[in-house]
């Protein structure tokens, strides 16, 4: 930081940022502030949610399922263009190569032993206004020239926005809003690629942690989902903070029992309310207390897994059911938007 003389500057000569408070039409910045204010007051955060259920191409979804994704929130990408995906992959691969061998310069377009592919995921969106999701993959080129040998996927990451209306309203057209980023692969690769995106599109990545409050929402919403057949039981993991080692309590319930419990607390058809979520969790707590005399409400919920998806408080999710892929992403998008606003 250079030392500038604060006393020398004359106050309020030109006040572009401030003036906007008074212009009749709300500017994007102002909308941003308003929605941030709204979100900060807990009273105003949504009390009821729907679980969208969309039919997307199972093949497209297939390779997004059953993988553990680390979540990040991303601020809107500046001057991102879907027509330049090829160019981006060239630039990104050169950037990765340069990062891996610090100090040596590499020519863009040079041949490396890996490949970067940008591609779009057309089905991953909630409304028509949502920008198209896109996927970035790093493949290692197989040494053998044989054609049927598949390249090995080293790293995968994708950006998406599902029902992100609240964010879309607050930015101008120079920006592409894909607030949710999911990565699978070595953390070091995520760092390099994230850095490239930050530098190229002036955006910021932040790890997206999921609070216990949101985890219980997930538990309730995912239990509520109608399934043709269940692949896993509903499982909770609580952490008891005690030294020297923390104690984890795992609590697994048969999926049909959980669904029955949910049905008994569920009143409003088509949506899930805060009261229902609280009641659902309270029932589980009191059941557990009756048997083990432990107040789970005094501990911290750190993981939830169901047949729909599983989520860990440190921001790792795994989606299991393609029918509710969009539903899960909707909630995650909401959390990501909350974090960046």
């Amino acid at each position: 930081m250079d030392s500038y003389d604060t006393s020398a500057s004359t106050p309020g000569q030109s006040t572009s940022l401030k003036l906007k408070y008074y212009t009749a039409t709300a500017t994007p910045l102002q909308k941003q502030l308003e929605s941030a204010r709204k979100h900060t007051l807990p009273v105003l955060t949504p009390h009821r949610r729907k679980i969208p259920q969309e039919n997307i191409d199972p093949e497209e979804a297939a390779f997004l399922l059953h993988k553990q994704w680390t979540l990040y929130s991303v601020t809107p990408l500046y001057k991102f263009s879907y027509t330049n995906l090829k160019e981006y992959s060239r630039l990104l691969s050169a950037f990765i190569a340069a990062e891996k061998q610090k100090g040596l310069a590499v020519e863009v377009g040079e041949d490396f032993n890996f490949k970067v592919i940008f591609s779009t995921l057309l089905g991953i969106k909630g409304t028509q206004r949502d920008p198209v999701a896109f996927l970035v993959q790093i493949l290692s080129k197989s040494q053998l020239p044989s054609e049927n040998r598949d390249d090995k996927v080293l790293w995968t990451g994708w950006f998406c926005c599902v029902f992100g209306d609240s964010l879309l309203e607050s930015v101008s057209e120079d920006f592409t809003c894909l607030p949710l980023f999911l990565a699978n692969g070595a953390e070091s690769n995520t760092a390099i690629i994230g850095t490239w995106f930050q530098k190229t599109f002036d955006c910021s990545f932040s790890p997206l942690a999921i609070s216990a409050f949101n985890l219980s929402w997930m538990a309730a919403m995912w239990t509520a989902c109608k399934m043709d057949h269940y692949v896993a039981s509903v499982e909770f993991l609580w952490s008891v903070p005690c030294s020297p080692q923390s104690l984890d309590i795992s609590y697994a319930i048969h999926p049909e029992d959980a669904k029955a419990l949910w049905d008994s607390v569920h009143k409003t058809p088509g949506e899930v309310t805060q009261e229902e979520v609280d009641l659902f969790m309270d029932c589980l707590y009191s059941h557990f207390h009756r048997h083990f005399k432990i107040h789970l409400s005094a501990t911290r919920l750190i993981r939830v897994s169901t047949s729909v998806a599983s989520a860990h408080t440190d921001g790792k999710v795994k989606i299991l059911c393609h029918k509710y892929l969009i539903g899960v992403l909707t909630y995650l998008t909401e959390l990501a938007i909350f974090q960046i606003e």
Binding site: A97, A98, G103, L104, A105, V106, V108
Partner: peptide
């Protein structure tokens, strides 16, 4: 930037 990539220590 489209021609070359270099990462400095």
């Amino acid at each position: 930037p489209t021609l070359i990539s270099v990462s400095l220590p």
